[in-house]
Amino acid sequence: MIDILISKSIKDLEGIILLQKKNLRSDLSINEIKEQGFVTVSHTLDDLQKMHHHEPNIIAKNGDDVIAYVLGMTEQSKNDIPRLVEMYESFDHIQYKGRPVSNYQYVVVGQVCVDKNYRGQGLFDRCYQAYKEYFKDRYEFAITEIASINLRSMKAHERIGFSTINTYTDQTDTEWNVVVWDWR
């Protein structure tokens, strides 16, 4: 039986890391990247503990195994994890409905992943619905960045309601879409 819940323990965070490592772009073949999607950032347990201090994550578990997750990050996370500073500062320059993103109350989807053995079963949608239910009373929307080449992820995010508000190319020539899921 699959349960959707918030992360509560070190074991839950370790389960996120284990699933993340199986899906890192750097460790996948070109075909896997194209067909299955990928995650880009590898978090440490310390990173996840700092993020969890501000907000929990939504996880799906089958028994003791974490089989899906949606990470929750707040602006306070940028002070804990230096590599996030650039993304948060970019929100000062990205407009959403005529205002800088930084002027809104938002939660950042730090990453989303579903174990490949559980894909195509609606788990992505169920986890995101739980994410919305948990955060919608405190935040106006969820925002994240998705690499343009990650077509599976782009399509899945668009299907549940995310829309692209900005596109940019980073210093490694990777094109990124900044997407928002408005809950108002």
Results as ranks from 00 to 15, higher is better:
Met1Phe: 11
Ser90Cys: 00
Tyr168Trp: 12
Thr167Gly: 13
Thr44Trp: 08
Val70Phe: 01
Phe141Glu: 00
Tyr131Leu: 08
Ser7Val: 07
Thr44His: 12
Asp125Gly: 05
Gln20His: 07
Trp183Ile: 02
Leu151Arg: 10
Lys34Arg: 14
Asn117Asp: 15
Lys155Cys: 08
Arg152Asn: 10
Asp80Tyr: 07
Pro82Ile: 13
Gly98Asn: 08
Thr169Ala: 02
Ile94Cys: 03
Asp115Arg: 08
Met51Leu: 05
Glu140Thr: 11
Asp92Ser: 03
Met87Glu: 10
Leu19Thr: 02
Ser148Gly: 03
Glu158Ser: 13
Asn166Val: 01
Ala142Thr: 02
Glu55Ser: 10
Arg138Gln: 14
Trp181Asn: 13
Ala60Thr: 11
Asp65Val: 06
Val109Trp: 01
Glu175Met: 08
Gln20Gly: 07
Leu18Pro: 00
Gln95Met: 14
Arg138Ala: 11
Arg99Leu: 13
Met1Gln: 12
Tyr106Cys: 02
Cys127Asn: 00
Gln171Thr: 10
Trp176Glu: 02
Ile165Ser: 04
Tyr134Lys: 07
Tyr106Asn: 02
Leu48Ile: 12
Ile143Ala: 04
Ser148Cys: 13
Gln95Thr: 12
Asn79Met: 09
Thr44Phe: 09
Asn62Pro: 04
Ile67Asn: 02
His157Gly: 05
Asn177Gly: 03
Asn166Leu: 03
Cys127Val: 01
Ile165Asp: 02
Asn117Tyr: 11
Phe38Tyr: 15
Arg159Gly: 01
Ser77Glu: 09
Glu14Gly: 08
Ile160Ala: 08
Gly110Gln: 05
Arg159Ala: 12
Glu55Ala: 13
Thr167Arg: 15
Cys113Leu: 06
Ile67Gly: 01
Pro56Met: 10
Thr174Ser: 09
Arg99Asn: 14
Val179Met: 10
Asn166Ile: 00
Gly120Tyr: 06
Arg138Asn: 15
Met154Asp: 04
Asn177Ser: 13
Ile94Ser: 02
Ser29Cys: 14
Lys61Ser: 05
Lys22Gln: 14
Pro82Cys: 11
Ser102Ile: 07
Asp92Cys: 04
Gln49Met: 15
Thr172Arg: 13
Asn31Asp: 15
Ala130Met: 07
Leu13Trp: 06
Val107Leu: 14
Tyr106Lys: 01
Val114Met: 04
His52Ala: 11
Val108Thr: 12
Ala130Gln: 07
Tyr118Phe: 15
His43Lys: 08
Ser9Tyr: 09
His53Tyr: 15
Ala68Trp: 05
Ser148Thr: 12
Ser29Glu: 10
Gln76Val: 07
Gln121Ala: 09
Asn31Tyr: 11
Glu145Gly: 07
Ile165Thr: 06
